[in-house]
Every structure is written in structure tokens, then in C-alpha cells.
Amino acid sequence: MIVADRKSLEEILEMVEDCKKILIVGCKGCVTVCNVGGVKEVEILSSSLKIARKKAGIEIEIDMHTLERQCDNEYIEQIKETVNDYDAVVSMACGVGPQFLSEMYKDQKFFPALDTTFFGGATEHGVWEERCAGCGTCIIHKYDGLCPVARCAKSLLHGPCGGSSNSACEISKDTECVWDSIVRKKMEQGRLEDLLGVTEARDWRSARDGGPRRSIREELVQGNI
């Protein structure tokens, strides 16, 4: 899923400083799963902002609406009747949400309440870790399902660098060296020679280096199947 963290209340309050009436839009997708932008978090943000504004003596009216997803126009459309009744709209989705909203509703201002961080999963309750860099050409079959692009600080494809020590990366002792895990797994399975081959230089155009990306599925473009 896409993982995000909520911005500080100070930052969000600054964005809505001049607003008297705002709408907070949540998302029932990834950000609900990582407990940062679902129904509950929308309520908490709304109440926190109201408390801050009451304290400052400048009350604010806040409405809430949590959409099924903010990355599909059919759901974005659901607020079309009311979206322009507000001074601004705060989106609690990943970075996709405020942009889809902004593209559909040209006359409204949209603010992000979240900092979108990475594609990852929960390794334990309350802890999320990065697992995918969305580089556009998956090669993890060569590394037994572990991704050196996303999980090696240098995205090395031919083995660990000299900064690997005691299974940890040199950037932080809390960051595992994924190459240590890859080599260990290969050794345990007796397939270390798999790593002897030379991997061709990657074509990073499929990653962000090629500019904004697009995925087209012809069969769906033509209609429902």
C-alpha cells in the first residue's frame, strides 16, 4: 500500500489560516489501512483544528467526507454538489488525492494533510517499511523476492557495498542491509552461484527518470471486459 504520515497540526493550521469553512476529505484506501487518512483520522484532524481555532478565537466550520478512494474520478465526483461551498478543501489521501480533486474542481483550493512516504507494508502494528520503489521494471525474481532497488540505500544490483556491517546498512544501524538478507537467503538455499551472473545495466527510463509515467490497458480502454 501507499504509506503516508500526517503533517504537523501547525503546518495544516498554517495552510487553512485564512479559511472560515473547510471540507476535510478522507480516503478509504491505503491511508485508511495505514491509519492516517480514514474516517477516524478525519474526525481527529477536524476536532484538533477546531480546538486550535477556538483557542485562537477564530472559529472554523469543518465538514467531513471520506471517499471510497481519491484516485478514481467516479468517487471524486461524489462531492461535486458541495465542493465549492468551502474556502478550501483539505485532502487526507496520498499525493494522488489532492491532485485528482484539483484537476476535477478547477475553482477550488486543495491542501494536502499528509506527507506521502513510500510503497510498503506493516512489519508490526504501527510500523511500516518500504518494500517497493515503483521503478517500473521488477527484477526481484533475481534476488529471491527481495528488492535491492527499494531497500538498498544505493540501489546496488551486484552485491553489498563496503558499508554493510553486522547485517545493517551504514546509513543507520536500524536499517537492514538488504544485500545481507539476499546473500543469506541464497546461501541457506544453496544457490549462491545465482548471484555470480552480471546483471545488465538497468534502463531507468521506466522509473521516474523517464518523467511522469502512464499505464494503458487497451482492453479496458475499449470498454468493460
Binding site: 485562537a56 478565537g57 477564530i58
Partner: peptide
């Protein structure tokens, strides 16, 4: 409580 919506609380 300072949460009163009165400016003097500032």
C-alpha cells in the same frame, strides 16, 4: 480551558 473562541484568550 483556553478553548473558548474568545480572542482575549490569546
Amino acid at each position: 480551558t483556553p478553548v473558548t473562541n474568545k480572542k482575549q484568550n490569546n
